[in-house]
Design a protein around this nucleic acid. Structure first.
Lengths: 336, 336
DNA sequence: AAAGCTGATGTTATCGATAACATTTGTGCA
DNA sequence: TGCACAAATGTTATCGATAACATCAGCTTT
């Protein structure tokens, strides 16, 4: 009766194949000591019944799940969303499922509750998109023995980290503007407590200093078009500003609008370079020169670092840096 | 020895509290028949040990997991990404974890493999962001008895569906343009096989017909700024085009650029209305009038429909429609 | 030919929870 | 006072897999 409704278990397969359930388990786990003929018979029984191993039972006895938890602050932003999607694909290929845990704020209690939720599920490992030092600090509760990989985290934390080479990206952007003949480059950064922002600021400043140029005051904003606009309104009134490097494309969008309202032409009067290369950056007015980050590579690198820890291979890399490269469009063309 | 490393189980709590493990289980599940004093003692033991119930064990014996699978096509787009994030929050509040499964393509085999992955995990239910009829068709493999909710799916499918009122949104947009004095409104739609596109087309067409206006030929594109630009280049050359309603904000962005290049002023020469209200829409040049969808409401509605099915309450709603409303900005102001 | 492997398979214990049933304790009422 | 019934708690079976150990052929090896 209830045999029909219940989904088949290993013993059902065993009965049909005329073997013990342990042999079925061996076939499933590719254990060598199974006769080829038996293996085939078991496989046939599995297919016939549409058998599907119960992960809960497996997790219970082995003590490990095939689940990776991802903690993200705001998976609505282009970067995190892309990363999450890419990561899920990579994890699936490696036989892992991905459980997400978004958090609205970075305070300790929200972070802890997300981590708790993941621990409840007995995730095998955690990937944390931790953009700020405070996020890293709020994660103090993560047990030492749980494998973790940080994306964009603090390289000095001792935990494995995957980062985009923000410094090099920012250098390329700044260099490009100087090479186009600008005297100096202004920078509108993201929130200064973000690692990403810090790297971009550093690359920008270094490049100016190495070229012996004046370093204008740093302007910082959140990542939104809205703050870009407000900052842009100010910059648009300053005739000495001829080149602006912004920490992301949405800031750049706001700045472009402020410049346009003020009648300052881009790139003729002011050149603008963004960061991210969101899909629509090519259709801003004018099309945006920006720095592209290889999010797919970041996701795959994070997975490989995590799998390295799961396999307790002590010798795996602790830090991976993924390059960023300049994409030149009209907002800051190759030459003025 | 190994007591230290192993995370505490229910029996450990029971021993410390001086009760049986079953009593611990009762406390955990808020069973009424537990003396208050015992309850307190057990709670204290739980806290003291940092005990955390093993979901795998629970899932094994109850036969149901506290896991909801989400199938999304492209969680990088603003809509799906926002929805996913909101959904995760809502699910967490209800004690459910969320496992994501993205697919790059909508073909049958990718869809099936995602569903398989979720079934392997014994998800309690599935939420499918199925934007096209083909996606729904590709999901034929979902077992009849697995609770499923579609977001943006086909209302005629018989499965519970949550949709945004695309028709009403499109009507509001079109109506607004007509009210501003335009003779007719051109529409650049998304891919015509998307339910969203179909609803928006329908609302647009209805409104024009009811007003006795000429219905211009339908232009359709994918959702990208890139195709918006190409379509915009064509529209910009047609002096009779004075009002354009686009199926999303990124298309609108491409069109704005094409119009700008051609020297057609927005909104003076051509008014433009988008759809989505992405956060940066207010900073397009000019700021975009658009239709906002309440993605958070969609996510919560989907969750409630799903939980309704899990609780086998037969009488729950089968379809929820979430409103959309017009946000007026400069690309199509209140009056010309 | 007996001892000793090794490969193939089966048996039983186990993970950590809930379900079902059993037992003890407590309370109201005739 | 004692009986009936409810409340509180304990005992044992169970879910479906893997781990550990046991068994049993069929081969070497000396």
């Amino acid at each position: 009766m209830d045999r029909i409704s219940r989904s088949p278990a290993m013993t059902d397969v065993a009965r049909l194949a005329g073997v013990s359930h342990q042999t079925v388990s061996r076939v499933l786990n590719d254990h060598p000591n199974v006769k080829e003929q038996t293996r085939i018979r078991v496989r046939a029984a599995i297919a016939a019944l549409g058998y599907r191993p119960n992960r809960a039972a497996r997790a219970l006895v082995t003590g490990r799940s095939q689940l990776i938890g991802v903690v993200a602050r705001n998976s609505t932003l282009y970067g995190p969303a892309t990363m999450l999607s890419e990561f899920e694909q990579a994890a699936a290929d490696a036989g892992f499922a991905v459980s997400v845990g978004s958090v609205r704020e970075l305070d300790r209690s929200s972070m802890n509750s997300v981590v708790e939720r993941h621990l409840d599920q007995r995730v095998a490992g955690l990937v944390v998109i931790a953009n700020t030092a405070s996020a890293v600090a709020a994660l103090a509760e993560i047990p030492e023995d749980l494998p973790v990989v940080f994306i964009d985290g603090d390289p000095a934390s001792g935990r494995p980290v995957v980062t985009v080479d923000q410094v090099a990206g920012a250098r390329a952007a700044t260099r490009h503007l100087l090479d186009s003949g600008h005297e100096t480059v202004w920078h509108v950064s993201g929130p200064t407590d973000w690692f990403d922002s810090a790297g971009r600021i550093q690359g920008w400043r270094q490049t100016l200093e190495e070229a012996g140029r004046e370093v204008p005051p740093l302007l910082s904003a959140d990542w939104s078009a809205s703050e870009g606009y407000r900052t842009g309104q100010m910059l648009a009134r300053m005739p000495e500003v001829t080149a602006i490097f912004t920490a992301n494309d949405h800031l750049a969008l706001g700045i472009l609008r402020a410049l346009s309202e003020r009648g300052r032409r881009v790139p003729h009067d002011v050149a603008v370079v963004g960061f991210d290369d969101v899909p629509e950056a090519a259709y801003f007015i004018p099309p945006l020169t920006t720095v592209r980050q290889a999010f797919g590579d970041v996701a795959r690198a994070a997975l490989s670092l995590l799998l390295g820890q799961l396999g307790d291979e002590a010798g795996t890399a602790r830090q991976i840096v993924v390059p960023a490269h300049l994409v030149i469009r009209e907002s800051a063309p190759a030459r003025v």
